[in-house]
């Protein structure tokens, strides 16, 4: 209605669909609680990286094993279910093509990192919604999610699924793997937050409202670049660049 009266029209692209946005934001509290309650559990046997008593006390992580177990084994269902919904959506919609690294992504990722560290000025052309570094990061996060659940099951029911626990190298190995995954998740979150902060509002708005302005200076707007458009077309045709 107001669209006709408005003199100014803005060209937008639909960047992130509802499914991606909802599962993304739901994952925030779920993953946070999994990490926090996991630390409450880890405190009781801090065998890989020692958690000094002063640190545990400062972060309120000490003497709360029962509480940690309680939260961990309640939220695990929501965390896993949400991740399954996200994975299914990516698969069914074909949007996984926008996430997985392409042949060129490795080179792109290095260029993006160089650019972001202010070593070089040029960003590589970007086929699709996200850049090469993002492709690695988001696919990596999904892989971490899958393995967090698998290693988690292996140490949650090591007698019932002993084949799985043994396949992961035994109970102690699986517990260490679960711990390493948590650390990698923390690294991912740190880098992710840093980059989101750097990229600014137009980028964050894509994950909140779903759209991005084409005329703006935001990332996906660079798709108007002819080379990017050609690359995007190729992806649509299913070619692996």
């Amino acid at each position: 209605m107001s669209a006709e009266r408005s003199p100014e029209k803005i060209e937008i692209v639909e960047k992130y669909s509802r499914w991606v946005r909802y599962t993304h934001w739901l994952n925030v509290p779920f993953l946070f609680i999994m990490i926090w309650s996991g630390l409450l559990i880890y405190w009781a046997n801090d065998e890989y990286v020692r958690m000094p008593q002063w640190l545990a006390q400062a972060l309120f992580l000490d003497h709360r094993l029962a509480e940690g177990l309680g939260w961990h084994f309640a939220i695990m269902w929501f965390y896993t279910f949400n991740g399954v919904v996200y994975s299914f959506y990516l698969f069914i919609s074909g949007e996984w093509r926008e996430i997985v690294p392409l042949k060129r992504s490795f080179r792109d990722a290095i260029d993006v990192v160089k650019h972001d560290l202010k070593l070089t000025g040029e960003l590589p052309p970007q086929p699709g919604k996200i850049n090469g570094a993002q492709r690695f990061a988001y696919t990596g996060a999904l892989v971490l999610g899958v393995f967090s659940v698998i290693t988690g099951i292996a140490i949650y029911k090591p007698v019932q699924v002993q084949w799985l626990t043994e396949a992961l190298g035994g109970y102690r190995a699986a517990r260490l793997e679960h711990f390493i995954i948590m650390n990698l998740f923390c690294l991912f979150i740190l880098a992710h937050l840093l980059q989101v902060f750097r990229a600014g509002w137009a980028n964050l708005r894509g994950m909140i409202a779903g759209f991005d302005e084409v005329s703006g200076s935001s990332t996906s707007a660079r798709e108007s670049n002819a080379e990017n458009a050609r690359a995007a077309e190729a992806i649509k045709r299913g070619e692996n660049l």
């Binding site: 107001s2 669209a3 009266r5 408005s6 100014e8 029209k9 803005i10 060209e11 937008i12 692209v13 639909e14 960047k15 919604k129 759209f211 084409v214 996906s220 798709e223 995007a232």
Partner: peptide
Amino acid sequence: MKKHLVSREDLQ
């Protein structure tokens, strides 16, 4: 990516 034109009011 789907592109379309919308008014600023609608977008806001």
